[in-house]
Simulated assay, not measured.
Amino acid sequence: MARAPVYDDDLRDRLVSRAMDVVASSGAEGLSLRALAASEGTTTTAIYTLFGSKEFLLGSVFERIFAMIVDVQDSVALTGSARDDILALCLAYWQWGVDNPRLYALVFHGAASGGATGVEHLMRRMREDDPIGRAVRRGVENGELVGDPFVLTVSFWLIAHGASSLWASLPAGASLTWSIREPLEVLFDGCAPAR
Protein backbone atom coordinates (compact mmCIF):
# COMPACT_ATOMS: atom_id res chain seq x y z
CA MET A 1 0.00 0.00 0.00
CA ALA A 2 1.37 3.41 -0.96
CA ARG A 3 2.00 5.88 1.83
CA ALA A 4 0.33 9.27 1.66
CA PRO A 5 2.76 12.08 0.90
CA VAL A 6 4.02 14.16 3.80
CA TYR A 7 3.94 17.89 3.32
CA ASP A 8 6.55 19.50 5.55
CA ASP A 9 7.37 22.97 6.84
CA ASP A 10 9.95 23.45 4.10
CA LEU A 11 7.28 23.04 1.42
CA ARG A 12 4.93 25.29 3.37
CA ASP A 13 7.64 27.97 3.57
CA ARG A 14 8.44 27.68 -0.15
CA LEU A 15 4.76 27.95 -1.09
CA VAL A 16 4.29 31.05 1.07
CA SER A 17 7.46 32.63 -0.37
CA ARG A 18 6.44 31.91 -3.97
CA ALA A 19 2.87 33.10 -3.32
CA MET A 20 4.27 36.32 -1.85
CA ASP A 21 6.36 36.84 -5.01
CA VAL A 22 3.29 36.34 -7.18
CA VAL A 23 1.21 38.72 -5.07
CA ALA A 24 4.01 41.32 -5.17
CA SER A 25 4.12 41.23 -8.96
CA SER A 26 0.52 40.44 -9.92
CA GLY A 27 -1.63 41.09 -6.87
CA ALA A 28 -3.71 38.53 -4.99
CA GLU A 29 -5.95 38.09 -8.03
CA GLY A 30 -2.93 36.83 -9.99
CA LEU A 31 -2.34 33.90 -7.64
CA SER A 32 -3.32 30.57 -9.22
CA LEU A 33 -3.03 27.57 -6.90
CA ARG A 34 -2.40 25.22 -9.81
CA ALA A 35 0.46 27.39 -11.14
CA LEU A 36 1.84 27.86 -7.63
CA ALA A 37 1.87 24.11 -6.98
CA ALA A 38 3.52 23.39 -10.34
CA SER A 39 6.22 26.04 -9.70
CA GLU A 40 7.18 24.24 -6.48
CA GLY A 41 6.98 20.73 -7.95
CA THR A 42 3.93 19.71 -5.94
CA THR A 43 0.17 19.48 -6.30
CA THR A 44 -2.82 21.52 -5.27
CA THR A 45 -3.53 18.73 -2.78
CA ALA A 46 -0.41 19.85 -0.90
CA ILE A 47 -1.70 23.42 -0.78
CA TYR A 48 -5.11 22.35 0.50
CA THR A 49 -3.51 19.98 3.03
CA LEU A 50 -1.14 22.66 4.35
CA PHE A 51 -3.44 25.70 4.19
CA GLY A 52 -7.02 24.53 3.70
CA SER A 53 -7.88 27.13 1.07
CA LYS A 54 -6.51 29.93 -1.07
CA GLU A 55 -7.78 32.40 1.52
CA PHE A 56 -5.78 30.74 4.29
CA LEU A 57 -2.70 30.62 2.04
CA LEU A 58 -3.14 34.37 1.51
CA GLY A 59 -3.52 34.68 5.29
CA SER A 60 -0.09 33.03 5.67
CA VAL A 61 1.32 35.41 3.07
CA PHE A 62 -0.25 38.24 5.04
CA GLU A 63 1.43 37.06 8.27
CA ARG A 64 4.81 36.94 6.51
CA ILE A 65 4.34 40.44 5.09
CA PHE A 66 3.34 41.87 8.44
CA ALA A 67 6.43 40.26 10.01
CA MET A 68 8.53 42.07 7.39
CA ILE A 69 6.96 45.40 8.35
CA VAL A 70 7.67 44.72 12.03
CA ASP A 71 11.27 43.73 11.20
CA VAL A 72 11.81 47.01 9.32
CA GLN A 73 10.78 49.02 12.37
CA ASP A 74 12.69 46.79 14.76
CA SER A 75 15.85 47.37 12.72
CA VAL A 76 15.76 51.17 13.13
CA ALA A 77 18.74 52.37 15.19
CA LEU A 78 17.25 54.39 18.04
CA THR A 79 19.01 57.51 19.34
CA GLY A 80 17.18 58.20 22.59
CA SER A 81 15.66 61.41 21.20
CA ALA A 82 11.90 60.93 20.99
CA ARG A 83 11.69 63.28 18.00
CA ASP A 84 14.44 61.55 16.01
CA ASP A 85 13.23 58.06 16.92
CA ILE A 86 9.57 58.72 16.10
CA LEU A 87 10.53 60.28 12.76
CA ALA A 88 12.87 57.39 11.90
CA LEU A 89 10.32 54.72 12.86
CA CYS A 90 7.46 56.36 10.94
CA LEU A 91 9.68 56.99 7.92
CA ALA A 92 10.87 53.35 7.93
CA TYR A 93 7.26 52.12 7.99
CA TRP A 94 6.26 54.54 5.21
CA GLN A 95 9.29 53.68 3.08
CA TRP A 96 8.49 49.96 3.30
CA GLY A 97 4.99 50.72 2.01
CA VAL A 98 6.40 52.85 -0.83
CA ASP A 99 8.88 50.12 -1.77
CA ASN A 100 6.29 47.31 -1.54
CA PRO A 101 2.96 48.83 -2.59
CA ARG A 102 1.25 45.58 -3.64
CA LEU A 103 2.24 43.79 -0.46
CA TYR A 104 1.23 46.79 1.65
CA ALA A 105 -2.12 47.00 -0.12
CA LEU A 106 -2.72 43.27 0.38
CA VAL A 107 -2.16 43.53 4.12
CA PHE A 108 -4.22 46.64 4.72
CA HIS A 109 -6.73 46.78 1.87
CA GLY A 110 -6.75 43.42 0.17
CA ALA A 111 -7.99 39.92 0.09
CA ALA A 112 -5.92 38.47 2.92
CA SER A 113 -8.22 36.57 5.20
CA GLY A 114 -7.94 33.56 7.40
CA GLY A 115 -6.87 35.74 10.29
CA ALA A 116 -6.76 39.25 11.60
CA THR A 117 -6.59 42.17 9.22
CA GLY A 118 -3.55 44.42 8.96
CA VAL A 119 -5.35 47.15 10.86
CA GLU A 120 -6.10 44.71 13.69
CA HIS A 121 -2.42 43.71 13.77
CA LEU A 122 -1.41 47.37 13.79
CA MET A 123 -3.78 48.18 16.66
CA ARG A 124 -2.57 45.17 18.64
CA ARG A 125 1.03 46.23 18.05
CA MET A 126 0.20 49.77 19.25
CA ARG A 127 -1.24 48.33 22.45
CA GLU A 128 1.42 45.67 23.11
CA ASP A 129 4.92 46.39 21.94
CA ASP A 130 5.06 49.25 19.51
CA PRO A 131 8.39 51.01 18.97
CA ILE A 132 6.61 54.26 18.04
CA GLY A 133 4.54 53.99 21.22
CA ARG A 134 7.66 53.39 23.32
CA ALA A 135 9.33 56.46 21.77
CA VAL A 136 6.19 58.54 22.40
CA ARG A 137 5.97 57.38 26.04
CA ARG A 138 9.66 58.19 26.49
CA GLY A 139 9.03 61.63 24.95
CA VAL A 140 6.15 62.30 27.37
CA GLU A 141 8.21 61.07 30.34
CA ASN A 142 11.23 63.24 29.51
CA GLY A 143 9.17 66.33 28.61
CA GLU A 144 9.71 66.33 24.82
CA LEU A 145 5.97 65.75 24.26
CA VAL A 146 2.81 66.78 26.10
CA GLY A 147 -0.39 64.75 25.94
CA ASP A 148 -1.88 61.31 26.33
CA PRO A 149 0.71 58.77 25.09
CA PHE A 150 -1.87 56.52 23.40
CA VAL A 151 -3.53 59.42 21.55
CA LEU A 152 -0.13 60.72 20.47
CA THR A 153 0.92 57.25 19.30
CA VAL A 154 -2.26 56.84 17.26
CA SER A 155 -1.71 60.31 15.77
CA PHE A 156 1.80 59.46 14.56
CA TRP A 157 0.57 56.09 13.26
CA LEU A 158 -2.28 57.80 11.38
CA ILE A 159 0.21 59.91 9.43
CA ALA A 160 2.54 56.97 8.73
CA HIS A 161 -0.26 54.56 7.82
CA GLY A 162 -2.35 57.10 5.92
CA ALA A 163 0.59 58.20 3.80
CA SER A 164 1.64 54.60 3.18
CA SER A 165 -1.88 53.72 2.10
CA LEU A 166 -1.98 56.72 -0.22
CA TRP A 167 1.32 55.79 -1.86
CA ALA A 168 0.32 52.11 -2.14
CA SER A 169 -2.88 53.09 -3.96
CA LEU A 170 -1.13 55.17 -6.63
CA PRO A 171 -1.26 53.83 -10.19
CA ALA A 172 1.98 52.25 -11.43
CA GLY A 173 4.51 54.92 -12.36
CA ALA A 174 2.74 57.71 -10.47
CA SER A 175 4.42 59.51 -7.60
CA LEU A 176 3.80 62.31 -5.17
CA THR A 177 6.21 65.16 -4.59
CA TRP A 178 5.97 65.43 -0.82
CA SER A 179 7.35 63.43 2.06
CA ILE A 180 5.70 62.49 5.32
CA ARG A 181 8.56 64.07 7.24
CA GLU A 182 6.90 67.51 7.22
CA PRO A 183 3.50 66.40 8.63
CA LEU A 184 5.29 64.32 11.27
CA GLU A 185 7.41 67.31 12.29
CA VAL A 186 4.33 69.56 12.44
CA LEU A 187 2.57 67.02 14.68
CA PHE A 188 5.62 66.68 16.92
CA ASP A 189 6.01 70.47 17.19
CA GLY A 190 2.31 70.84 18.03
CA CYS A 191 2.65 68.30 20.84
CA ALA A 192 5.90 69.72 22.24
CA PRO A 193 5.73 71.77 25.43
CA ALA A 194 5.41 75.53 25.04
CA ARG A 195 8.75 77.32 25.17
Rank of each mutant, 00 (worst) to 15 (best):
G80D: 03
S53L: 09
L57H: 06
P193Q: 10
Q73P: 01
P171M: 05
R137P: 04
R127S: 15
T177M: 10
S17P: 00
P183R: 06
E128R: 12
V146E: 14
V140K: 01
M68H: 12
F66M: 12
G27Y: 02
S17E: 11
V16K: 00
M126S: 15
V72N: 03
F51H: 11
V6R: 12
L50Q: 11
G41E: 03
R127Q: 14
A67H: 07
T117E: 04
D148Y: 06
A135L: 04
M20V: 12
G133I: 07
G97F: 00
G139P: 01
T153C: 13
P183L: 04
G80V: 00
V98W: 00
L184I: 06
T44R: 10
A116C: 02
A192N: 03
R102C: 08
R127T: 15
G30F: 02
A38R: 06
H121S: 13
Y104R: 14
I180R: 02
L103C: 09
L103P: 04
Q73T: 10
V6C: 09
G97K: 02
L187Y: 02
A111Y: 01
D10T: 12
C90Y: 00
S169H: 09
G190K: 00
A92G: 05
E144R: 06
E128A: 14
I47R: 08
V151R: 15
E55R: 13
A174C: 14
P193Y: 09
D84M: 07
E182Q: 08
A111R: 11
Q95L: 08
L50S: 11
A112Y: 01
L176K: 03
T153V: 12
K54G: 11
G27Q: 04
L184T: 06
F188W: 00
R3Y: 13
S53W: 07
D21A: 07
E55P: 02
